[in-house]
């Protein structure tokens, strides 16, 4: 009998080498999209968080590369459009993205290059999950991770509407919504997210939410000593707090950082959707029993068929983006 993997408290440590049982169990799910009767979990996992210290980020994109490698995604080779951001936006194949902002600080007269790693914030109160009409397509574990279950996803895009951070992206050929999973598959076996593991400056760290808040406090103190009087933690309460948090030099103006919402809220439309409309949506989806939904969780998404679709798409795309430097 294999041991249950420990709950990870860091992304830096090397993973255990012996095979371990997943510690993210169907019974750890606390919320399920379009499902009201989720059984009470038997245990409460420790709340986790990823802390992104923007003041330590050098924009190297190791996190992007690690994300692509771990999740085996295949983002398209785009063009340079006059900025460092590549790909230019989050895509169904690129779950995280460095966003670069050039900022003239009117207080100091200094120029600043603000670099923020964008991606799913893993809200405590996830708008995507609330908006989702497909039973079991979006779940939240008791450790706070919000995960998309592609097998149950119908690609309707309501989650995009529901997200205050504009994160999910709909895969055009696979017809499923995609985003950062906080490496739930790694966390399940005792490891931190791939991006945090790859980050050379420890700008990205991972652990219990409590530890991450404590770590952020130390960083904020350091930043204040360097003249950033408004340094602070971004853990927006409008969505109940998040399991991805930022240390910002200018926490009073989150939107400086490539439009990070100053006060994110779930759209009233989505909040309303929770009522009668949602019931209708669930009816359309067949009102699957909670048991069946959770069974779907146990069987992880069938990556093979999806991957085949992606490859097909790449093949189709290649006709148009032959490696000619875009000169044709």
């Amino acid at each position: 009998m294999k041991d249950l993997a420990p709950e990870p408290t860091t992304a830096q440590a090397n993973p255990p080498v012996q095979p371990m049982e997943s510690n993210l169990l169907p019974s750890d799910v606390v919320r399920v999209s379009a499902t009201s009767n989720v059984p009470q979990p038997e245990r409460q996992l420790t709340k986790v968080a990823k802390l992104i210290d923007v003041s330590k980020c050098i924009g190297c994109k190791a996190c992007q590369a690690a994300c692509v490698e771990w999740n085996d995604t295949h983002p398209a080779l785009e063009e340079n459009v006059g900025v460092y951001d590549n790909p230019h936006d989050l895509t169904p194949e690129m779950f995280t993205l460095m966003r670069f902002t050039e900022y003239e600080n009117p207080q100091t007269g200094d120029f600043e290059w603000l670099i923020r790693k964008d991606g799913c914030m893993h809200c405590e109160d996830p708008g995507c999950l609330k908006a989702c009409p497909a039973p079991g397509a979006i779940v939240q574990y008791s450790n706070g991770i919000v995960d998309f279950i592609s097998d149950n996803c119908i690609g309707c895009g309501y989650c995009v509407q529901g997200c205050p951070f504009d994160i999910p992206r709909i895969h055009k050929t696979a017809h499923v919504s995609k985003k950062c999973t906080l490496c739930s598959d790694r966390v399940a076996v005792g490891q931190g997210p791939a991006c945090a593991k790859a980050c050379p400056t420890e700008c990205i760290s991972f652990g219990t939410k409590e530890d991450m808040i404590a770590k952020a406090e130390g960083r904020i103190e350091d930043l204040k000593s360097r003249g950033y009087d408004n340094a602070g933690l971004y853990d927006p309460q409008g969505v109940g707090g998040t399991h991805v948090m930022y240390v910002l030099h200018h926490a009073d103006q989150p939107s400086l950082y490539a439009g990070l919402p100053d006060d994110p809220q779930i759209s009233p439309l989505v909040q309303g959707w929770k009522g009668p409309a949602k019931t209708a949506g669930m009816a359309v989806a067949g009102l699957a029993a909670a048991g069946a939904v959770l069974h779907g969780l146990l069987a992880r998404p069938n990556e093979v068929s999806e991957h085949e679709e992606q490859e097909a798409e790449v093949l189709v795309d290649q006709g148009g983006r032959d490696n000619d430097g875009g000169q044709a």
Binding site: I58, L77, N86
Partner: peptide, 23 residues
């Protein structure tokens, strides 16, 4: 640039995606 190592990593798709084109 951080995204690449000299003239090697342009042979790697992941690196190429993060800085695809000469500027």
């Amino acid at each position: 640039l951080t995204e690449h190592f000299h003239y090697w990593t342009k042979h790697n798709v992941t690196n190429a995606v993060t800085q695809p084109e000469f500027f």
